[in-house]
Design a binder for these strands. Structure first.
Lengths: 111, 111
DNA sequence: GTATCGATGTCTACATTGCCTGCATCGATG
DNA sequence: CATCGATGCAGGCAATGTAGACATCGATAC
């Protein structure tokens, strides 16, 4: 049972969900990833990732009480589980330690 | 033309090489990853990753002038190419923007 | 001088992630 | 009723992550 770390994209999805708080529906996540990280992927790609994160217990969701006046599938509101938050912290800390001290070569983060 | 971003582990390997400067031989990278990021992988895993980073032009290497008195294969000294540095910066910036503002939930980095 | 060790590198194979296209659902709108 | 819009799901291939076995060749132990 080796740890198995969240991949690069998985991390981004988790972060996007956290930022969206109550508004983390799949398509909003897609927009957030584009807006904040310049990362554009297809819906299918995102859903697959969400499905995997769910299987790993890093995210969970509930269906939204259907807003009167919209059809199709009821949408799901995602949230990051405590396990997910922990995984995120671990990844961040590891990267942070590796980055630390390289500011000269890499420059400061570009906001 | 798809960008294709460095994966989670690939980023760590690139960073480890940068930190080691002139001392970036495969096995030192392995130790650096363990020490700084707590990430332990087999040699095979690392070599595969280095090979892929090389194919993508993110790292390059030269064989070391053989130190008198050590046998086996001559070891390779790796370095990150300018392209590699750029890729690293891009990934960092994207993650940085996503992290920004979430300090309350995630806490400050753990040094 | 032979067996082994130590530090490297390579090859093969498989598991996990990343990512896309295409298809289905179902109110609202024309 | 045809279509659109916002969703979600299935299937499948490509890229990444990871391990384990095997090869090389000085140095050192016996």
């Amino acid at each position: 049972m080796s740890p198995t770390y969240p991949g690069e994209f998985e991390q981004m999805v988790l972060l996007a969900i956290l930022r969206l708080e109550d508004n983390a529906f799949a398509l909003s996540v897609l927009r957030e990833l584009d807006k904040q990280a310049g990362r554009r992927v297809s819906r299918g790609a995102l859903y697959k990732t969400l499905e995997r994160l769910d299987e790993k217990g890093l995210v969970e969701w509930e269906v939204e009480e259907t807003t009167p006046g919209r059809g199709g599938h009821p949408r799901r509101r995602f949230s990051v589980t405590p396990t997910g938050v922990r995984a995120l912290r671990t990844s961040r800390d590891a990267l942070h330690r590796l980055w630390h001290g390289l500011e000269d070569m890499l420059g400061e983060p570009n906001p």
